[in-house]
Amino acid sequence: MSSTVPATSGYWKRNQQRLAPWLFLAPGMIMFTIYVIIPIFESIWISFYDWDGLGAKTWIGVANYVELLDDEAFYTSLQNNILWLVLYLLAVPAGLAVALFLNQTVTGIRLYKSLFFFPFVISQVVVGLIFTWFYAPDFGLLSALIKAVSGQDIAILADERYVTLGIIAAGLWPQIAYCMILYLTGLNNINPEQVEAARMDGAKGWSLLWNIVLPQLGPATFIAIVVTVIGALRSFDLVSIMTDGGPYGSSRVLSFYMYEQALSEYGYRMGYGAAIAVVLFMIMMVFITLFIVRMLMQERNA
């Protein structure tokens, strides 16, 4: 026993700097493995079964994925997700524009910051309810403005042409605030000497922003794009609160359709829902991988 303790103590002293980071990372890595990595592989495995979540599983191979190819509701959900992805990315330049405005020293800037920060701290459920009232055809402010201008009543959340656009607009409100916070943090870390040197060389306006400011905001831009893409692809809560997938399933997205098939009274088809989840996961991984590869290439070139 007396020889074991010094040996262990000596090993720790020799490898302390190498082992200490892994000890700090271990709790997070264990939790990430249990709650993220393992469920991903379990979802892939379940997608090959016909299962109601309670009874015995029946192996059906790729039948769930074959069924997806002929599922009109799946293609509607996929199309809506693409629309979400394209329009949701508007939050990144909009957040940058707001951050550039709030980064100035003007009278009342703290009040402006509080107003723009407010959407970020409220839940998506509250955002959905606010915009549901905002769009309401009988007392909503937007509907009243549309009627005053055009003389027509438009029920945005009941019209298949506008419902997805209306939900996306609701989601952009807090997402712009989130991107704004990222860019404000990045602007506070910009090297003032480079900015001053560029101004002495005559750079100003768009030239200063494009050549000096934006390159230093690269990390903030990367995080903003990744988070925005993930938010667009998992847009479940606003759809559920504002329309419940309606009217006639026209506002469904993949995450909501997965829920309908796997966990709602309309489905209880865990295998089919898992197949939808796997497709959504693969789409998300493609975009995130592209962004990571591009970021690594830019760092190497720099």
Score class of each variant (00 low, 15 high):
235 S>C: 14
209 L>I: 09
203 A>L: 11
214 L>D: 04
222 F>Q: 12
224 A>P: 15
257 Y>F: 12
234 R>V: 12
267 G>Y: 00
219 P>V: 07
270 M>D: 00
209 L>S: 06
223 I>W: 12
250 S>T: 15
229 V>F: 07
201 D>M: 14
227 V>L: 13
264 S>E: 05
259 Y>H: 10
256 F>E: 01
226 V>I: 08
218 G>T: 15
241 I>D: 06
238 L>H: 11
241 I>G: 03
193 E>R: 14
258 M>T: 07
230 I>F: 13
220 A>N: 08
263 L>W: 13
267 G>H: 05
268 Y>G: 01
274 A>L: 00
214 L>P: 01
197 A>W: 14
241 I>R: 06
244 D>Q: 10
232 A>K: 06
249 G>C: 07
258 M>K: 03
255 S>M: 15
202 G>L: 07
244 D>T: 12
268 Y>S: 02
211 N>W: 15
266 Y>M: 01
203 A>G: 10
243 T>V: 08
257 Y>K: 02
273 G>L: 02
237 D>N: 13
208 L>H: 05
200 M>K: 07
229 V>W: 03
216 Q>R: 02
236 F>R: 11
236 F>K: 09
250 S>Q: 15
263 L>K: 08
204 K>M: 08
262 A>T: 05
217 L>T: 09
215 P>I: 13
216 Q>W: 03
269 R>H: 00
257 Y>D: 03
266 Y>W: 06
273 G>K: 03
244 D>E: 13
224 A>K: 04
263 L>R: 13
225 I>H: 04
269 R>W: 04
231 G>E: 07
258 M>C: 04
274 A>Q: 02
276 I>H: 01
203 A>T: 10
249 G>M: 13
268 Y>L: 08
265 E>N: 15
202 G>A: 11
236 F>M: 10
216 Q>G: 03
212 I>E: 10
239 V>E: 02
223 I>S: 06
201 D>N: 07
194 Q>G: 02
272 Y>C: 00
209 L>D: 07
240 S>L: 15
252 R>A: 05
275 A>P: 00
249 G>K: 06
235 S>M: 14
207 S>P: 09
258 M>N: 11
211 N>L: 13
255 S>F: 05
250 S>N: 14
198 A>K: 04
215 P>Y: 15
205 G>M: 05
248 Y>D: 12
270 M>Q: 01
250 S>F: 07
251 S>F: 04
261 Q>R: 09
237 D>A: 10
232 A>V: 14
250 S>Y: 14
275 A>W: 00
251 S>T: 10
224 A>G: 14
242 M>D: 08
258 M>S: 05
219 P>R: 05
240 S>D: 08
248 Y>M: 09
275 A>L: 01
256 F>M: 10
213 V>S: 03
251 S>M: 14
221 T>R: 14
276 I>Q: 00
211 N>F: 15
245 G>V: 02
234 R>C: 14
234 R>K: 15
203 A>D: 09
262 A>L: 01
212 I>Y: 03
234 R>M: 10
265 E>V: 11
271 G>K: 00
245 G>S: 05
208 L>Y: 07
238 L>E: 04
270 M>L: 03
271 G>R: 00
